[in-house]
Design a protein around this nucleic acid. Sequence first.
DNA 1: CTGTTAGCGCGTTCAT
DNA 2: ATGAACGCGCTAACAG
Lengths: 341, 341
Amino acid sequence: MARVTISDVARRANVSKTAVSFAFNSPGQLSPDTRDRILHIAGELGYRPDPVARTMTTKRTGSIGLLLPQAVHTAFANPFYPLVIEGISSVCDAHEYSLLLVSPVRGSVEEALGRAAVDGFISIGMDEAELPISHILRREMPVVLVDAGDREGETPRVNISDRVGARECARHLLELGHRDVLVVAIQSYDETRPLQGVPFERLSGYQQAFEQAGIPWREDRVFFARPTREAGREVVLAAMRKGSYTAVLAMADILALGAYDAAQHLGMRIPCDISIAGFDDLPIAGLLHPPLTTVAQPVREKGARAATLLIRSLQDGPGGSEVLETQLCVRGSTGPPRSAM
Amino acid sequence: MARVTISDVARRANVSKTAVSFAFNSPGQLSPDTRDRILHIAGELGYRPDPVARTMTTKRTGSIGLLLPQAVHTAFANPFYPLVIEGISSVCDAHEYSLLLVSPVRGSVEEALGRAAVDGFISIGMDEAELPISHILRREMPVVLVDAGDREGETPRVNISDRVGARECARHLLELGHRDVLVVAIQSYDETRPLQGVPFERLSGYQQAFEQAGIPWREDRVFFARPTREAGREVVLAAMRKGSYTAVLAMADILALGAYDAAQHLGMRIPCDISIAGFDDLPIAGLLHPPLTTVAQPVREKGARAATLLIRSLQDGPGGSEVLETQLCVRGSTGPPRSAM
DNA sequence: CTGTTAGCGCGTTCAT
DNA sequence: ATGAACGCGCTAACAG
């Protein structure tokens, strides 16, 4: 049997389609008994308004899109993403929105954008300058940018104080006496673009700390890796083969975890032989042994704020931006370098 | 300015709407030059077919719904979920489907179901007997059930050998000499229903091991907790207050992690004072200290298979079911009880 | 006040 | 390469 439509119900109840629609959406327009009769028949027939047809006229899908710069399974290699989603969802849930995970189709974010039937987007890690965003704007859909860099812009966004957090973390290592610091930076999803957004901010923070401490910043000690445990491990191993370091300054906890793997592989002990610091303060940071020194950022909160901003702008038009604070968490994975002990 | 529609393009190009549609969907129907002209104008105007209107006629949304029995942010407290999603998404991505996270609306899964504009559903942790599923079936949408218990049923499903895995894990503890075993079971999202599905299977497995070892099974040593780290911790603390145990048999790694927390809180050392075993073999299992003895299941694979099954049935009609294997992973968190040392 | 008629929204598709 | 009908539910205008 084919799907039960509003017409089926109308026919069966000897009323017009309008009446059926009213029974569901404007109960007041109908006399209680016809209303009940319609509802009853609808229930019997198992009628459910088709969400797509409904959207056609209401212009509302009831879902919001989460725009990722990579495939979901790639992004999720970093527990950061599920965590932001937790935050987003907690708000979506309260407002009865569903979340659509939108990742590039055949490499094209735009293509994916065009296909998504949503009321608005939350974008993670993409900058306003990127084509896709301009596409959303053209479609005149509300957007909130998360981790897009703190450039002033018309587009509402939620960021954290990346630069400050990174700076404090680097300063911490330098103050411990480290001079040979391996920086593991997040490789952008698009390697061809100049460094910007979050990776850029954090790198700038690191650099600032070096400058303020009067220690030369060495580009050749910056290595890039996609934010996965494996990539972190490999890049650290590669770097260690070429140079000698007393500390690893990783731009993400998941990269720091990779560094732990590398250290273990090399028989180096943390923090005696090598200090390691991360960024994010994901739940895993506290599970590691020794616990990871890292920069705490309110990940869930970030997601929640973004969702709140978006949902609000769905009702009242575009809202503002927010910057959340970071905080250095010194734990067991960092200590003075061997030479200084 | 309002959204650019197909009519705008048609007008501007002096062709019919049909021609514009052809230019995008059946390029062969048009002479190359009109086709190019249309496409060019469409590009200029920034025209993108409205995904909703498109769905109206094609009956295809390009997304599949992931049906969760709880709010996303609740479910994600267990890293198991992001991991299944990784698996699902890897397949969805390859087939250009997006994933819609669908969780109950005001407590009603059905309500959420009715609103979701998707081509099919993957349901996690809900049984066929549950109302919502029957609703999908009425809507005649393809569904694949994950972790729904291995009852024979017409609905395609992907399961693992929960019972066997659980049995082997319990047997392991019993063979080590444990007699006072605290069982931490997963509390179903719906406490009113009789135990079934995955929790039931695993519990049966535990019970079997006791029976086969000739050791009395004690219901009063089974405690239920929602699958979160915090709930695991609390329930173990509560149990420990009332009784004395040498081992914890947790139905999920995340609950085992909670047990670690409890052990630490109580000043108990693992495995000397207390042995702990989990289920799932999530990445965190290997990060814990000592590493967690657990039952490995191919979580990503499970998601991937489910997605494959669903997408196939989207094309060729309903497919079969699959059961994946589990494997006991003995690691440092289990050892002989004190008394037997 | 209760209920109907008619047309819309946007892109696809059949017959011509 | 076109015009018209269609999908499904919503709603403005209108009649009893």
